[in-house]
């Protein structure tokens, strides 16, 4: 909801999946062949001996980044959707007000602060980052799942019960499909934030695409910073355009 918009699509009006695929190809090509840009990067940083970040291969950094974000987001989707569904069932209804308040208060917490707090609690490394991303990523998913489920016309629910659908059938055949576009928007927000926050995780000892940026800033090498920034930007756009596409597919059916 908060970052989703239709304007961005028209900017890159490639048909169907070509958009995200194009970005992906560009991302992979640059990760493999950053060397092609050496001449350009030299312009930015004429005095440095080395302009290409070489401490780790970009592909490995990209892999790490995607892995951390992927694991955290997957867990956040499972927990977030599961939790939100649980508190909208009769058995978990008691927890609904608290969970929905928590989800909205939690979203005012800056992601960096959450990441920073995870370190004292869990130490340095990849695990605290995953936990921090997971926790923060839960919030938009929970919030949107709740909004999606609660936004369903009560009469549709009533009719489903009146027709003799069981609770499970109502959940699978009515509630989830109807809430899917809203839930997906939440997942998109969550993943977008996670891609960005994971990069900051480079400061707490994870090696990913944030690394070149941090080491570039530390060493005063703008070329490093550019390489990292370029790849993270491309990753974010690839992911976002894929979600854009997915949302269109899911949202296309029937629903107003």
């Amino acid at each position: 909801m908060s970052t989703a918009g239709s304007g961005a699509v028209r900017l890159r009006a490639l048909p169907g999946w070509l958009g995200p695929l194009g970005w992906l190809v560009l991302l992979l090509a640059l990760s493999l062949g950053m060397g092609w840009l050496e001449g350009l990067l030299r312009l930015v940083e004429p005095d440095s001996r080395q302009v290409l970040y070489a401490r780790a291969s970009f592909l490995a950094l990209l892999g790490q980044h995607v892995l951390v974000v992927g694991v955290a987001s997957l867990a956040a989707v499972l927990l977030g959707v599961g939790g939100a569904l649980a508190v909208t069932r009769p058995a978990g209804r008691d927890f609904l007000p608290l969970v929905s308040q928590l989800a909205s208060i939690g979203q005012t917490f800056p992601p960096v602060a959450v990441l920073a707090l995870a370190v004292p609690a869990l130490g340095f490394g990849t695990l605290p980052i995953i936990v921090a991303l997971l926790l923060y990523g839960l919030l938009p998913i929970v919030r949107n799942t709740l909004a999606g489920i609660q936004g369903i016309d009560p009469d549709v629910h009533e009719a489903a019960r009146g027709m003799g659908m069981t609770r499970g059938q109502i959940l699978r055949q009515v509630e989830l499909p109807l809430a899917a576009p809203v839930i997906l928007a939440g997942v998109r927000t969550s993943v977008t934030i996670n891609v960005a926050t994971a990069a900051i995780g480079a400061t707490v000892g994870a090696s990913n695409l944030g690394d070149p940026i941090i080491s570039g800033i530390v060493n005063g090498n703008t070329a490093y910073v550019l390489q990292g920034a370029l790849l993270i930007g491309l990753l974010a756009i690839t992911v976002d355009s894929a979600f854009e596409r997915l949302q269109r597919r899911v949202g296309r059916r029937g629903v107003q």
Binding site: D153, D155, V156, H157, E158, A159, A160, G162, M163, Q173, V174, P177, L178, R253, G254, V255, Q256
Partner: peptide
Amino acid sequence: YVIQSTGLFPHWT
């Protein structure tokens, strides 16, 4: 069972 607002499932044909 028939209700005023029909309660048709908007995502189904």
